[in-house]
Amino acid sequence: MGIINITLHPHNPQRYVDLFSKLFSLDIMADTAMNHKMFLGRVSSIVEDKPLGGLAGEFYRFFNLDKRSAWISTATRTALKRSEANRVKDIPDDLKPDASSFQFVFYPHQHRLVFTLRGQYFENSLVNPRTPPSMSPHTLVNVLNQLFAAPEIVKEFGSVEVTAEPRKEKLEEMLVLKRMQHFRVELTRPNPDDFAALERRYLKKLDDQNVRQQTIELRAAKASGIKLDDDMKELARIAASNGKVEVEGYNEQDKKVYESTEEHPQTDTVTYNPKLQQPVQVLAERALDFVRRVVGRN
């Protein structure tokens, strides 16, 4: 499982439900790796008629076959002439090959999306692939950013911020790098419900100045490195779930290191019996506990 933070302003659980409903109603797709595309293929309430309790659905991925591209015959080892290639036009435009699905659940109150890192090929495949399709948190963040950038979404919901939750222990390692030479925080406006009163002051500063994103960059004056104070560390912890944190410096072995929270997404593993359970059922049962462990809230 991977986990992603999706943030709207103003924050309201029903607006998150409306966001996914709107996205499902639109015929928009996102580009992803290896000439594939993805779109929101299915979404519904985990418990019927109670969408605020959680949504479940699937992202569909397929190979974007361009019938206008050059074609070659592997039998004759010759490129098809344009007149010969016209026969591929018989393939209906709505049929796409190499189709697979990735299940997800989304909790409006926590505004976190948990998804399967490994997907499933559809049962109509004529072959039985040995390995399931896979997708990283970074890939899904990129996909969601494209989908949420659709004009219809922006017009109704404004800017939608998407961040893959990083591993907390890795962030803490980054914050105590002994000879830190460069420290950079990119903070997008967080949801105030996520934090205690102490952290909300950062949100108030952004709101008071009408700022959506803030970048803070520090460079060491001496080789001994940057000494982060508690406020800066707290800001980094907020930015880790709402933007990113980057550090550069030297470790105890005097080796130069560069770390970014984007490179260390938080994941978890759940085992199940595929003969008895579907992945989305397992997600519905286990994802909320995963969210609570990562976010630290009910």
Rank of each mutant, 00 (worst) to 15 (best):
V160W: 07
I226P: 01
V176Y: 04
P274E: 03
T78K: 11
H11K: 13
S136A: 03
R42W: 14
L203Q: 12
H111W: 01
E259T: 00
I3L: 15
G119L: 04
L206P: 03
R297G: 02
K255R: 15
I72R: 14
L52P: 04
Q278T: 08
S136K: 10
E246R: 15
G57F: 10
L19K: 10
G243Y: 07
F122C: 07
Q181W: 02
E186N: 13
D207Y: 09
P92Y: 07
K170S: 08
L171C: 03
R87L: 11
V127F: 11
G2K: 09
M232I: 13
S136Y: 06
A284Q: 09
L171F: 05
L113I: 04
V295C: 05
L228T: 02
Q213D: 09
N124C: 06
Q277V: 00
V257F: 02
N191R: 10
N35M: 12
Y60R: 14
F148H: 02
L144Y: 05
K233V: 00
K233W: 03
R201T: 10
L283Y: 09
R237V: 00
V143Y: 00
R112M: 12
L117V: 05
L8K: 13
A150M: 04
E161C: 08
V143Q: 01
P132I: 01
V211K: 13
Y272K: 07
W71V: 12
K204C: 02
L276H: 11
K155A: 15
V127D: 08
P129R: 05
Q181P: 03
E84T: 11
L117M: 15
R189C: 07
L235V: 01
S25R: 11
R82E: 14
P274C: 02
H36R: 15
V282R: 06
T7K: 14
R237P: 01
N124F: 11
L65T: 03
E234S: 11
S69A: 14
Y202H: 08
R184K: 15
V257C: 01
F115Q: 06
Q214T: 13
G296H: 01
P13M: 05
E259M: 15
N145D: 10
E217I: 06
D31Q: 14
D194S: 06
E123S: 12
D229M: 04
T116L: 09
Q281Y: 01
D230K: 14
L177I: 02
F104M: 01
T78Q: 12
V141T: 14
S45E: 05
Q103G: 06
F39T: 09
R61F: 02
A196T: 08
K37W: 03
P13T: 04
I72P: 06
E234L: 13
S44G: 11
V114Y: 07
H36Q: 13
E252T: 08
M174Y: 02
Q103D: 15
L177N: 03
I28S: 10
S134K: 15
L95G: 00
R293I: 04
L117W: 07
H182Y: 14
N142R: 14
K178Y: 01
P97W: 10
Y16G: 01
R292H: 07
E165A: 12
